[in-house]
Simulated scan of single mutants.
Amino acid sequence: MRIGAAQARPAWLNPTAGTKTVVQWSSRAADAGVELPAFPEAFLSG
């Protein structure tokens, strides 16, 4: 299993933008062969 750590800036108090970021980064990670992208705790705040 390939695991990747996402080092992305969260969109504080904007769950819609945060979700969009997670989807985009997860898609990019999948294209790179990552099976489990890991995001920081409380990344989807709001």
Rank of each mutant, 00 (worst) to 15 (best):
A30Q: 03
V23M: 12
A42L: 11
W12R: 11
G46P: 00
K20W: 00
G4M: 02
R2C: 00
S45R: 10
G33Y: 01
L44Y: 00
S26A: 15
V22F: 00
R28F: 04
E41W: 04
A11F: 09
R2A: 00
S27K: 10
N14H: 12
E35I: 08
F43D: 03
R9L: 11
W12T: 08
S45C: 08
V34S: 06
P37L: 07
P10W: 00
A30H: 02
A6R: 08
K20C: 01
A17P: 03
A32M: 13
T19E: 09
E35D: 13
Q7G: 12
L36Y: 14
A11I: 01
P40S: 08
M1H: 04
I3P: 06
W12N: 07
R2W: 01
Q7E: 13
E35C: 07
G46R: 00
S45M: 05
L13Q: 03
A32I: 03
A5E: 14
G4Q: 01
L36C: 14
W25K: 15
F43V: 04
A5S: 12
E35F: 06
Q7I: 11
V34G: 07
K20F: 01
A5T: 14
A6W: 08
E35H: 10
G33K: 03
A5F: 15
T21G: 04
R28W: 05
A17H: 09
S27V: 07
P40G: 08
P40K: 08
N14P: 07
G33W: 03
W25I: 15
S27E: 14
I3A: 11
E41V: 04
A5W: 15
T21L: 14
M1Q: 02
S26N: 07
A32L: 15
A30P: 02
P37Q: 03
G33R: 03
V34R: 05
V23D: 10
L36W: 13
P40I: 06
T16L: 14
F39C: 12
F39T: 11
R9K: 12
T16A: 12
E41S: 05
Q24I: 04
M1F: 03
L13F: 08
A5N: 12
W12F: 14
P37N: 03
R28A: 13
R9F: 05
G4V: 05
A38L: 12
A30I: 00
I3L: 14
K20L: 06
R2K: 04
